Computed example of a mutant assay.
Amino acid sequence: MMQEGIFSLAVFAVVATITPGGATTLATDSGARFGYRRSVPLMAGIAAGLASMAALAAVGLSTAILAVPSLQLILKLLGTAYLLWLAFKIARNGAPQSSSAPTSPAGFVTGVWLLWQNPKGWTMTLGAAASFATLADGPTRLATLLGVAFAVASSVSLSIWCVAGLLLARRLRSERQWQVFNLILALTLVMSIVPMWLE
């Protein structure tokens, strides 16, 4: 029974982290522009942000967030504003060699911040804490279990998206192709905002 529960948690974490959203979009964009190695700090920040959110959800922060509806609204507003700003920046980027392109990849802190203000991440980790609470005999062990599960799953998922961006970038030759690619990524990021307002 315990092994089945761990397997279910692993499947949940992989599915939750590999679906398109703000984090996967940034990993794809970073991979396309800077390659895998230079994107590692961003991906590590996203994984750490998600792991820490899952751990906090397990030790009881979920109670505070669910008890104060205004806190949920503030998180949604902050998250929406930040993701729209990122989408705007991505849409305005040119090809990597153009003057409008960023010269350095986003770092660890950006990755953590992206997750911490993202209501989709909180909803996902709060749901995991509630769904898999019986896998551990206390909040500390559950926090460790969820933190590790989400850190590993997001690291794998983000790596896949980053490599996909890297491989796709090798096929983009013209400034126009890069503009279309950037616009698609920006629109994907904007579309990832919609589900958090429909919940």
Rank of each mutant, 00 (worst) to 15 (best):
Q3R: 11
E4S: 12
I6L: 15
I6R: 04
F12T: 09
A16D: 07
A16Y: 01
T19R: 11
P20G: 15
T25P: 04
T28W: 02
D29E: 07
S30V: 07
R33N: 11
R33K: 11
R37Q: 10
V40F: 02
L42N: 01
M43A: 05
A47P: 07
G49A: 09
A54F: 02
A58E: 05
A58M: 04
G60R: 05
L66W: 02
Q72I: 14
I74F: 10
I74Y: 00
L75N: 01
K76Q: 00
K76F: 00
T80L: 13
A81F: 14
L86V: 08
A87Q: 05
F88E: 12
K89Y: 06
I90C: 08
R92H: 15
G94N: 12
Q97K: 12
S99F: 04
S100T: 14
P102N: 00
F108Q: 05
G111E: 04
G111D: 07
G111S: 09
V112I: 15
L114R: 02
N118C: 00
K120F: 04
L126H: 00
G127V: 08
A129M: 07
A130V: 10
S131I: 03
T134R: 10
L135F: 01
D137A: 13
G138Y: 08
G138F: 05
G138V: 01
R141V: 02
L142S: 10
T144P: 03
G147H: 03
A149G: 09
A149C: 09
A151P: 07
A153T: 05
S155K: 01
L158Q: 08
L158G: 07
L158Y: 05
S159D: 01
S159L: 03
L168F: 12
A169W: 04
A169Q: 01
R171P: 04
R173W: 01
S174R: 10
R176Q: 11
Q177Y: 05
Q177M: 11
W178R: 06
W178L: 06
V180Y: 14
N182M: 05
L183R: 14
I184N: 11
A186G: 10
V190P: 02
S192E: 09
P195H: 09
W197L: 08
E199P: 07
